[in-house]
Design a binder for these strands. Structure first.
Lengths: 330, 330
DNA sequence: TCTCATTGTGTAACCGGTTACACATAATAT
DNA sequence: ATATTATGTGTAACCGGTTACACAATGAGA
């Protein structure tokens, strides 16, 4: 089998030094038109491709970026990952997928491992770790969806505003007795969404119940079934997550409670699942793709040492009205 | 900032040569107990971590594996990816996520790029490329979900058997007029599922309609709406995909056709979506996680040059009965 | 004419590992 | 006693890039 050509082969073929070839490849330093031509054709002739590993060894940089998510299986993350990958690819970067399961140890292991590989940066959609771990990492990082620390650029949705928006809509639809299914406390977006909800019902003459519930379909269904039987007269549910909302919807269905005529339901996230349910789930939609794309672009700026316009970016959310709420129009 | 220690620092600290340190690290070649001890404590003292990039340069091997999927956003793939990642991690490998969008060019680009990075192997869940591209790649490959070529180890579900199973169940439930929503023709699993369906209705006295339909919710819904209005008396739908089935379910709902009393629906895949729908989707479930895990284990064997017991592994499927089919029990 | 900046090029060290090979010593076989 | 084998270690070349630095040649400015 023909051995792959290396830079010295190219230099010899072109009749120049390796330095010139390298300068040509990196468009760095002086090189004459003539030498450029010779190198060009030598490269073509030999089918030369630079060895990225060798390059990384000397530059201490790769075009690898680590994407750390809790679990790609959670339907919020694939779209995020897709966006990250798309943007990364268009800039010549490649993404390593890391599922942390929200476990600090797995996260640390991944970070250590990837550091040894000279990854160019991290996009982190977990906040398991102490911020300190990231601070003294001296590798570019962008936090996605969740705030890690003031010093780390963050892109997330406007969760407070979103929760306000959803709640107001429920109020407009005349809900008087609302259950807010909040996500795990301590988790940034979950806390923010609760805050937005509380703000929106502040001073309003309605009954509300805050119930904690993990971001998981089965648990959500079970919990919803419980409160729908135990609490009298619930006429609105705001779930912090579309998956939880789906659980609530299914719970209502199995209890013979009709949606939206008896109970109206709103979710949060805007994942594709929302549109697949029957009735379609009304939800506060994040622009998930944009979230990921912006994060990746920020990371690239940090890697290339370009000043960031903003360290914290909030992406607006949008209420998408479907069939789980009553609408004058339908 | 303290510079990271390298192998020469360790050698000096331990009072041995770099070769001994390297031998210790790789558990390869002779090394005395005494030297081992000295190296061990030097490593500990200096907090030494081998530089993986340097190692790769000289061994021409990384512990990176490329996972090529059409689109991680398609809910079938996250679970697959998760399984691959889990197994990879447990063997010290790391996975690069590549979305090909079924485009040959993207796929080739990724393969070229990753080859330059000395990836250890590929798991490919696309069959866009000519098999020839893979054959003369001299990098270990495992095909997942779809067959690429006889020479390439493959792990997939038993699609024919699955379709037979689903169809038989529909027949048992007394469906007489069945629409089979087949996936894109030319795509291995889609063709197999059709074949299984045809086999199962062979000789049975029922009416059947084969309708081609992409693996995509919106299209599926539209197509289902169309055939549900145009074809008289449809009482069963077998969709090649859970997502398509979800589309059909929604179409039925919006046309006021009740499921399962008027039309029964069966999907294929067993993604989590199926359980979240109301009514729950009866489906031919693949063991998606197992598919991914087996593929990754096979790949590792190939990488480590261990003989494979079987080059082609078929993972059994299972009928999961939920609410979109009539059951004696409910 | 004599600086000196600008452009262009090559040599060799360096990044941080692996490993072929030479060399040494001790134990065992002949 | 000698050959052979197993055990143990170090030197230096190598993987394939990047780049500091030395050195030319050319043209402009004083």
């Amino acid at each position: 089998m023909k051995q792959l050509a290396n830079i010295r082969d190219v230099a010899k073929e072109a009749g120049v030094s390796v330095a010139s070839v390298s300068r040509y490849l990196n468009k760095k330093g002086y090189i004459s038109e003539e030498a450029k031509k010779k190198v060009q054709s030598a490269i073509e002739l030999l089918g030369y491709k630079p060895n990225l590993v060798a390059r990384s060894l000397s530059t201490k940089q790769t075009n690898l970026i680590g994407l750390i998510v809790p679990d790609i299986t959670n339907p919020f993350f694939p779209e995020l990952a897709r966006a990250v990958e798309d943007v990364a690819l268009s800039y010549g970067y490649t993404v390593i997928l890391c599922n942390s399961d929200e476990e600090a140890e797995k996260e640390i292991n991944y970070i250590e491992m990837l550091k040894q590989k000279y990854v160019a940066g991290f996009i982190v959609a977990t906040n398991q770790l102490q911020a300190s771990h990231y601070e003294d990492l001296d590798i570019p990082i962008v936090a996605l969806d969740r705030m890690i620390h003031d010093s780390i650029p963050t892109v997330s949705s406007n969760n407070i505003e979103g929760a306000r928006l959803g709640t107001s809509y429920l109020l407009e639809q005349n809900c008087q007795n609302i259950v807010f299914m909040r996500g795990p406390s301590g988790l940034g977006p979950a806390d923010d969404r609760l805050a937005g909800f509380l703000e929106a019902i502040e001073g309003k003459d309605i009954t509300s119940h805050i119930i904690e519930c993990p971001f998981n379909f089965e648990h959500s269904e079970r919990i919803a079934k419980k409160f729908l039987t135990e609490i009298e007269g619930v006429d609105g549910i705001f779930a912090s997550t579309d998956v939880s909302a789906a659980g609530a919807l299914k719970a209502a269905y199995s209890l013979g409670i009709s949606v939206p005529s008896n109970v109206q339901i709103i979710g949060f996230d805007g994942i594709s699942l929302a549109g697949m349910l029957t009735p379609g789930l009304t939800t506060v939609a994040q622009d998930i793709y944009k979230l990921g794309a912006i994060a990746m672009r920020m990371l690239i700026k940090k890697i290339e040492d370009i000043e960031l316009d903003d360290k914290v970016i909030q992406v607006p959310v949008e209420l998408v009205v479907r069939g789980t709420t009553r609408s004058e129009l339908r």
